[in-house]
Each structure stands twice: as C-alpha cells, then as structure tokens.
Nucleic acid binder design. Structure first.
Lengths: 187, 187
DNA sequence: GTCTATATCTTGATAGAC
DNA sequence: GTCTATCAAGATATAGAC
C-alpha cells in the first residue's frame, strides 16, 4: 500500500530529526531505513521542506491529542501536570531523542518559514495547555506556590524543553528527572 | 599576524555555530567572512572537529571567568543570580544566537566524543556556579523559596537553556524574559 | 601562512522508463 | 509507485607551489 510507505517515511524521519536534527539526516538515510530508493521519496514528499512541514503537522496533532487525553483522564491539576511531565520524559527515549520542536529550532536557518510558523503554533498550543492545567491546580489547591499561571506556563514549557536538551547532553534520563524534581515536589 | 587570523576564525565560527548550529556553517562560510581561502583554514584547524574543540574550550573559559566576575562584583545571592540571568539574556542577541553548548547538543551526532566531554564539563561547571549562588542566596535570605540548592541548580540551568531555545523559536528576547519572570520575582 | 588546484564524497532534486 | 541514471552544488580535506 502507498500510504504505508508514506507513514513509514514519516516515522523514520521523525526519529532521525529528533535524534540528529534536521540537518542530521538525508534522503539516503530514509531510503535505506524504509527499503526504497531515495528518488522514490520525492514522490511522497517533493522537497525536504514539504517533509518537515508534514512532520510538524503530525507531531502537533499527536501531542495535542495526548494533552487532551491527559486532561480528561486525570482529575486534579497536580495529576495532570505530573502526567504531562511523564509525557515529555517518555519522549526522551533514554536521552536519545528530543522533542521534534526543540530539535528543529536549533537548525532554524535550514527551515522554511512555513515550518517556523508551525513550530510557533505548536508552542502556543502547549503553553495554553499548561496554562489550563495550572489554573486547575491553583483552583483545586493540588499544586502549591502558583502566583501567575500565565507566566508560570511559559517557564514550565522552557523548563521541559531545556531539561530535554540537558538530558541529551548527558544521554541520561536522570538528568531530566533532576531538572524536574523541584517542580514535581510542588504537586 | 597569524594569531589574529586564528582568533578571527574562532569569532566567526562561534557566531555561526550559535546562529545556525554545527552543521549549519562550512569552511567556505568562514573563509568568506574572514577573507582567506578555505584551504588556509586547515592550517589553523586541521579538521572541523579540532575547530569545534577549540570553540568549546574558549567558550568554557570565557563563561567561567564571567561567572567568577559576577560572584566577586555582587554581594548577595539574589544580585548574583540576576546578573547570571542577564548574562544569558545578553548572549541571545535578540533571539538570533544560542548558548554554544545548547546549539552543539542538538547536532550531537556530528560531534566528536572529545567535544561531548567538553560540553559535559561545561555544564558541570555551570551547575556548580549556580549551586554556590543559591547557597549564598539561601544563607543571606535574598532569594526566597529555596529548599534544595543542588536540585534547584539543575532546574535553573535547564530553564536558562530552555528559555534560550524558546526565545530563538520566536526570535524575540521577550520570550526569554517571560520564561524567567517567575524566577526573577523570587530575588 | 596563504595560495591554487584537485580529490572524494554527499547532498537534494529531476527525467524518464516500467 | 518505484526504479535507474544523472545532475549541479555543496561539503571536508589534501598536495604542493610560493
């Protein structure tokens, strides 16, 4: 089936982009991993810019769905925040892969304006999700020390992304846990 | 003079690495910026790996000196922490350049083991510096809400690096300020 | 120290057969 | 949809003259 190849390409490309950055993988790499010739990739994604756009679209939708699931499945703000932290923790794969958004920003100059806009939209979505979680945690008193959910949501997204980066530097999830320890102790 | 060329190369390479990542600049770019032919660069830095190692060495020394200066020039922990935050803020250049260490981590697979070790050493140095600042701030009561300087120092480095990244996503220093707002209000 | 010239490899992308 | 064949451009690196 055609669509399976397309999905397989996205899967491999996402993993590669998160492990090595946008400039860190080539059509040759994808071709070998999926088992087709590199020229055939252009049938599914005419340019690498188109591929990266598709990558961000899928990633955004997936994470938004995950966030919504978390907010339905957990009742208190504290439980939701802990679940979100776990979501980012799992995405690390033992410090081998970054959040796609984090990985792409570093290679910013190789990216199309299109993709930059998608990254900004993704970040705005995540900030809004965290904001809602904090508001709930403030209301139900399950998270301590919240003074301003709006500015705090910005700090938490930066912390999550920064902790991803530092865990990758050490290639060790413990580094992520250490960085998130203070925040988790407030739940 | 010979050494001037070497310094000029390091200057241009550092800016390029921080703006576009390690895979985002070439010897051709450096040659054009410095005004020599790309083959001549190999005289100063035989390989790109050697260049990146020299880059990290210089960066580490510079930032360690800056941290020491901050801790001499400011008396309270709060003042020192605010000065450190400003140091990172200035390094952003309106969201156009990242901390060298942040930028290199994302292109990790293109890096030599040598450089990865240097990045880890750099991070350990920064964590130790922040730890000392927090201990002082806890002692002199100039920073509120510190329970554990050790785990908090990890969180703050991750926050600083993450805020760098997010400011770059928006190419706007305000994003950095927003992410650091909560921490600064504790000083 | 810097140059020209060159080697070798890899990149993303296209044309056209099947 | 996938293939072979090919392209032009870019990369890092080396040899040897000056």
């Amino acid at each position: 089936m055609t669509s399976d190849t397309k999905t397989a390409l996205l899967d491999v490309a996402e993993h590669a982009a998160r492990a090595r950055g946008f400039d860190g993988f080539s059509y040759a790499d994808l071709a070998e991993a999926v088992g087709i010739r590199k020229a055939s990739i252009h049938y599914h994604f005419p340019t690498k810019a188109a591929l990266s756009a598709a990558l961000m679209d899928r990633y955004s939708l997936t994470l938004e769905a995950e966030c919504n699931r978390i907010r339905v499945e957990h009742k208190t703000g504290a439980e939701q925040l802990l679940a979100l932290i776990d979501l980012y923790r799992d995405a690390l794969n033992d410090g081998k892969t970054l959040c796609l958004c984090v990985s792409l920003i570093s290679s910013r100059e190789s990216l199309s304006d299109d993709v930059i806009q998608k990254i900004r939209k993704f970040r705005a979505m995540m900030v809004a999700q965290i904001e809602e979680i904090l508001k709930l945690g403030q209301e139900d008193k399950s998270i301590t020390g919240i003074t301003d959910p709006i500015s705090e949501s910005r700090a938490i997204l930066a912390l999550l992304e920064g902790a991803h980066l530092t865990a990758r530097a050490e290639e060790n999830v413990n580094t992520f846990d250490e960085a998130l320890g203070v925040l988790k102790s407030r739940c």
